[in-house]
Design a protein around this nucleic acid. Structure first.
Length: 417
DNA sequence: AACGCTTACAACCGCAGAAAC
DNA sequence: CGTTTCTGCGGTTGTAAGCGT
């Protein structure tokens, strides 16, 4: 894994490159313990570590900081990655902000590996149910790319990665019939201009309202959802046209796995939150929530292709596939849908330095019981803290319940039209 | 056992935006 | 207000380990 291990000439001598040693890790960890994160270029000055600031930051963010969750992705994490990638594309930092303890680099590596594997196999990237979730949420007329003023951000100029992939066999059809025969007018100029396909889908919103009122005698979301941003979820938990304003704070650059918890819980906007079942209320001490152990995994497999259960997760996502096709079953083409879980391979290798890092913190690899370096230069002021680690499991579950209400019949018509 | 291919992962690079000067 | 420095992000590369032949 080691690179050449050579060095480059830095200001204070030869900067080392290549893999980090335990001694280097310890220097960096000690430095951060004393001074907190940031000012990475000072690390070399103050510790003598022959690494550039960028390298220090990367090492810290990806390997040394507490609350990192190592190991294979759980099925629910994979689904979240798929959802978010379908929604926002290669925005690894934003995606990782929804996966507590996961780094952007980790997700990026996962995706690239998956991408290569699936492309080689000639398989589509997204499972149909994920595409559906994204498409339907988009159809709620929420613009996740709007900035504080509701204008299209730079991201907004990007085409939705999922819905416009003409090569994607699961891409939406050119027309989506609305039950009333006409799509409702959009309230979002951006969506109108840039996402014509979404415009066509907006008529579905009316159906959702109708069906929700019929099918959901009790609210799908907990009270705190209804009280807040998701209050716009209309009767029965569906988003109505009376959407709450999108997060209005300008998007501050946040480190990987750190996200703005003061507004929507992420910088990604309402749709992103909805997609994940996130709410829009500040949570108690959100910046310091610790990663708990991975929920137990219970995954229903097709009998014909039973695979060993992934050993890494366990979970609250037992209903994860309840509202969609089973893995291995392609609802659209009748072909085998080789979805995420078949892709999951057991972790075979461990980072060589992992044991050393664990020793450094005195903890076992994996979810780190959340001790954080709250002292910064001896003060007791809260440090910037670890990357926010908010488990969205319960919200994801609610999101799944929400999606489960979507009638497949209409859904299927929409896709097969 | 040797070889080649694939996978997983760590780390580097270039670029861009924000902050500091 | 221009320049420099710092920081973060996304893309890419290199390599060890696993696996099949």
């Amino acid at each position: 894994m080691a690179r050449s291990g050579g060095g480059v000439e830095g200001g204070g001598g030869v900067l080392k490159k290549g893999p980090w040693t335990q001694a280097e890790d310890k220097l960096l960890v000690d430095h951060v313990r004393r001074h907190g994160e940031g000012n990475w270029n000072a690390v070399r000055r103050e510790t003598g570590l022959q690494r550039c600031g960028k390298s220090c930051r990367l090492r810290w963010a990806n390997h040394l900081r507490p609350n990192l969750r190592k190991g294979p992705f759980s099925p629910e994490e994979e689904r979240q990655i798929l959802r978010l990638h379908g929604l926002i594309g290669n925005k690894w930092a934003r995606i990782s902000s929804h996966l507590p303890g996961r780094t952007d680099n980790e997700i990026k590596n996962y995706w690239n590996t998956r991408l290569k594997r699936r492309q080689r196999a000639g398989l589509p990237l997204y499972p149909p149910d994920i595409e559906r979730e994204i498409a339907l949420l988009r159809a709620q007329n929420v613009n996740p790319f709007a900035d504080a003023d509701g204008n299209a951000s730079a991201n907004g100029s990007l085409p939705p990665p999922l819905l416009y992939d003409a090569s994607n066999p699961f891409a939406l059809p050119p027309t989506v019939p609305s039950p009333s025969g006409s799509a409702s007018a959009s309230h979002s100029p951006l969506i109108n201009q840039n996402y014509p396909l979404l415009n066509q889908m907006q008529g579905m919103q009316q159906v959702f309202h109708h069906l929700a009122s019929q099918q959901s005698p009790q609210p799908v979301f907990h009270q705190h959802h209804q009280d807040s941003g998701a209050a716009a979820l209309g009767h029965g938990g569906f988003v109505s046209s009376g959407l709450p304003p999108l997060p209005t704070r300008p998007q501050a650059e946040l480190p990987s796995n750190q996200f703005d918890t003061s507004s929507s819980g992420s910088g990604g906007g309402l749709l992103e939150s909805l997609l994940l079942g996130d709410d829009h209320l500040p949570r108690h001490n959100p910046s310091m929530v610790k990663v708990s152990s991975m929920p137990a995994l219970s995954y229903r497999e097709p009998v014909s292709s039973r695979l060993p259960l992934p050993v890494h997760g366990a979970g609250s996502d037992s209903d994860d596939t309840s509202h969609c096709c089973l893995p291995g079953e392609d609802m659209h083409h009748g072909a085998t849908w080789n979805f995420t879980f078949e892709d999951v391979k057991p972790m075979k290798r461990r980072t060589p330095s992992e044991a050393g890092i664990s020793d450094m913190f005195g903890v076992a690899p994996g979810p780190v019981p959340g001790e954080w370096f709250s002292t910064c230069g001896g003060s007791t002021a809260p440090s910037p803290g670890p990357s926010s680690a908010v488990t969205d499991d319960e919200f994801s579950l609610e999101m799944q319940q929400f999606m489960s209400l979507l009638p497949l019949s209409i859904d299927e018509h929409s896709w097969n039209a």
